[in-house]
Simulated scan of single mutants.
Amino acid sequence: MSRGTVAVLTTDAVLDRGAIATALALTETGEAHLDIHCLGIESTPPDAYLAGPALMLTMPDRDAAQARALELEAELRPLIPAHRGNVQLHRHHIREGLIGHDVGRIARLADRIVSAAPYGPEPRPLQVATLEAALFAGGLPVIVVPDGGAEIAPSPSRLMVAWDDSREAMVAVRAALPMLRRAGCVDVVIVDPEVQAGDRSDPGGDIALFLARNGARVEVSVLARSRFRVSEVLRRHALDTGAEAVVMGAYGHSRLRERLFGGTTREMLTDARVPLILAR
């Protein structure tokens, strides 16, 4: 792992445990610093009530949010080995309705974020909100790991790039370049390339050349859309080839559209069996 700062934005001591384990492993050598941010997020207490024609609302509970941050810190501190001098825990009070702003300001001071999978058997709205804040407001890459965490070697044997020729995909590739250079193989995967694409005779040739000139060992896989969703094709290929992580652009469509109609980013995040390195 290169120098700099790795960060984990925590809202739940159980759900974020795997992300912390992965971040600890990524910073094991001590060359990079690890910041664990314990977020106490304000929420309006569920005791609004009708008083005649008026709706009576209580104010967001600032004290409860600060207490939650303190509780998170106490729950997570035992996870940090005593010898790890390059790890710090921080408490933050996040204002209601300003998660994007407040979390984005915290996230932007890191070089990369490690995040728990934002979707699971149970709703995880705070994980979704913090992940999106890091991507959109923080503007930095996020490594999303499955529940329980994942082992990402400093020099991975095989990484996969989900390439669709978009701006977001290029941002993700640039963000992941240090890791891509160290990988034994970088598999550039293109699913059902467009007929009108300029490099139809050589799909992926331009990005493969870019990566090769940056020191990566590259191969290109052009896949037919044999399944209903592109995400299913990408996920199956990653598992079949033993990719240690998938690099991809995030939210090429708007977040609202992906929530309403689905999209490759959300579908990959919903069943994150392989770590995803996301940027936009």
Rank of each mutant, 00 (worst) to 15 (best):
V114H: 07
S157P: 00
A162E: 09
A82V: 08
G85Q: 04
V188E: 08
A116P: 09
I143P: 01
I113Y: 08
D187M: 15
R174G: 05
Q88Y: 04
E28F: 02
E267Q: 12
L180V: 05
R227H: 10
V246N: 03
A64E: 13
A224D: 14
H37Y: 00
S201V: 03
L209Y: 05
L135G: 05
V222M: 05
A117G: 02
T58G: 14
D102P: 04
L50K: 06
A134P: 00
E75K: 13
F261D: 13
D61T: 04
L15M: 02
P53N: 04
H93P: 10
A107N: 01
L24E: 04
G85I: 00
L159I: 11
T10S: 15
R174K: 13
A279W: 10
V220H: 08
L126W: 02
E73S: 10
R257N: 14
P78N: 05
R257E: 14
E122Y: 09
A133G: 12
L98R: 15
D16F: 10
E42N: 07
A245F: 00
L239P: 01
D61C: 08
L79N: 00
R280C: 00
M170R: 13
T29N: 11
D147R: 14
P203S: 04
R255A: 12
D16P: 10
